[in-house]
């Protein structure tokens, strides 16, 4: 009907239009994964983000992909993204060199509910590339270390060569105000650390179930099994938070791709309480 819908506001930015950002630096993390830092090519930066949120990152002439923000949330500029070269767009982003201009729109999604962990013990479990969206969370835990009780971190990857942010992990492991356990699924004799799944490290973790908040990010099967074990240890389902990954094209709940049952992972997620998605996680091919 001619009068029923409000007219489009001419001044509103186009929801699909990226903002040009220049690559400042590029660091190889693994054989196929790089970390790039970005700053606005000109003009204003995008809005402030919170740990756990993501951006849509665009390579001119190639396309756009959802990438979690893995920078220092305490000092929001520059923007940091860790990208694994898997498809056309991620390969183009992983090839980006300093000086090159990419596009960014965001931030999108629900961040880690860090304030809910104030005064509690914190368990962080990451797997593979899942450490990327957890890194700003870890930085915030350190920045406000006195607000949290005991902090335990478990990070797992397939092999030692697949560990992200390795120098940083080494320095994290030196700290006495939290404990970091690193484990790999398989390793050669050059690896002196733990071998096995992250769930095998859980029994080692000292925590008081009733006052623990857990943040998980990694392959879905890792999160499912970790959450199951944590529930078995008495951690409330509502205190376990997971970051889900789904195909995303728009990031604004309009393209339909990221639906997970009733939720749009881009809008209601990517961070969910285990209570919200436990039933659906147990069903195949949702």
């Amino acid at each position: 009907m001619a009068s029923s819908a409000p007219a489009a506001t001419a001044a509103a930015p186009h929801p699909y239009a990226p903002t040009p950002y220049r690559v400042l630096s590029r660091v190889s993390e693994t054989a196929d994964t790089v970390t790039i830092t970005l700053a606005p090519a000109r003009g204003a930066a995008l809005g402030a983000h919170r740990p756990g949120q993501f951006n849509m990152v665009y390579a001119f002439g190639v396309g756009e992909v959802a990438v979690s923000i893995s920078d220092d949330a305490v000092a929001p500029a520059p923007l940091v993204h860790t990208v694994r070269a898997v498809g056309q767009v991620t390969s183009a982003l992983a090839r980006a060199v300093p000086g090159q201009v990419l596009g960014v729109r965001g931030p999108y999604g629900r961040p880690w509910p860090i304030a809910g962990a104030h005064g509690k013990d914190v368990l962080v479990v990451g797997g593979g590339l899942g450490l990327a969206p957890l890194r700003p969370l870890l930085k915030e835990l350190l920045a406000h270390r006195d607000r949290f009780g005991r902090i335990e971190i478990i990070y797992g990857a397939r092999t030692p060569k697949d560990l992200l942010y390795y120098p940083q992990i080494q320095s994290w492991r030196q700290r006495s105000d939290w404990r970091v356990q690193v484990t790999v699924d398989a390793a050669g004799r050059e690896w002196y650390g733990d071998v096995g799944l992250v769930t095998a490290r859980l029994p080692d973790v000292r925590l008081e179930p009733a006052r623990t908040v857990a943040f998980l990010c990694g392959p879905e099967i890792m999160m499912r099994n970790t959450a199951r074990d944590l529930v078995d240890r008495g951690i409330p389902e509502s205190a376990i938070w997971l970051s889900l990954e789904r195909n995303m094209k728009c990031a604004i709940a309009q393209c339909g791709h990221c639906q997970f049952g009733p939720v749009f992972v881009c809008r209601e997620g990517p961070v969910f309480a285990y209570t919200e998605i436990r039933r659906l996680l147990a069903v195949r091919e949702v």
Partner: peptide, 10 residues
Amino acid sequence: CFCSTTEEVP
């Protein structure tokens, strides 16, 4: 049905 995808056309 509103699902869509995007295409880059250089």
